[in-house]
């Protein structure tokens, strides 16, 4: 399967890209910067996913190279403003929504166009337990992930006729650059609310994404899967 993963230079995105490449899939990844790792089945695009023209050009290049796309993982996300909403700049709110929401919608739209002719596609959007825990100081990030979940449910209905499923995965706190920016004590507090009060692992995420990508998972769509017992 041809798989595109955004934010594949580090964190969960890189883990998933390496995971799928090692399984024999053709993996395309993107990030603002150049590739941070190599694999014979991995192709990297240095792309700003908030730039509509650049995203369309990337998808056109993927179509030329491989004819279509089987799966998209919208993984790239930012959390630039961990601060009370009353002290958060509008520019920071916009930046959060640009990457977390608008780029997810843009990539999904263009990816679905490559999936539709084959009547098969899998779109997985990364959400967050923040969307359910509503943690003080994370208003922009939380609102953006709530938007991602709403988009997931609506887009699932729109593309079902094309054999495309759209789901969201909300990992528990997985050690990444993004989660390391959060105050450890505050993170422990949030994790205590989960059935599993410890951080999750990369393998937890790949396990559920593997399952969603399977052909047999065609009836699973419009769902948000929370890991860690949120």
């Amino acid at each position: 399967m041809n798989i595109l993963i955004s934010g594949s230079s580090r964190g969960i995105g890189r883990y998933l890209a390496e995971h799928f490449a090692s399984q024999g899939h053709a993996v395309f990844g993107c990030s603002r910067g150049s590739a941070t790792w190599e694999h014979e089945r991995y192709v990297h695009f240095s792309v700003d996913i908030c730039d509509e023209g650049a995203v369309r050009a990337m998808l056109a290049a993927i179509r030329k190279r491989s004819g279509g796309l089987g799966a998209l993982v919208n993984n790239a996300a930012v959390n630039p403003a961990i601060a009370p909403a009353m002290l958060t700049s509008l520019a920071s709110v916009r930046a959060t929504f640009e990457t977390n929401v608008f780029a997810t919608m843009l990539l999904s739209r263009e990816a679905a166009k490559l999936m539709a002719p084959a009547r098969f596609g899998r779109i997985v959007n990364m959400s967050s337990m923040a969307a359910r825990h509503h943690v003080a100081g994370e208003s922009s990030y939380t609102a953006s992930k709530a938007a991602v979940e709403a988009f997931t449910r609506v887009f699932a209905k729109e593309v079902n006729a094309f054999g495309i499923t759209v789901n969201a995965v909300a990992p528990s706190a997985v050690p990444t650059d993004l989660s390391r920016a959060i105050d450890p004590a505050a993170l422990r507090d949030v994790l205590r609310r989960n059935a599993i009060p410890e951080p999750g692992s990369m393998e937890d995420v790949s396990n559920v994404v593997d399952w969603l990508l399977r052909a047999e998972s065609s009836a699973v769509t419009g769902q948000v899967l929370y890991l860690g017992g949120v």
């Binding site: 050009a57 056109a60 006729a161 094309f162």
Partner: peptide, 25 residues
């Protein structure tokens, strides 16, 4: 039907790209 219309629009965008290298929506 709407399926065919979406496919037509997608095929047209791809035909334009193949012909002109212009990526349009």
């Amino acid at each position: 039907d709407s399926l065919a219309l979406v496919n037509l629009v997608v095929a047209l965008e791809q035909a334009v790209y193949d012909e002109t290298e212009k990526s349009i929506t």
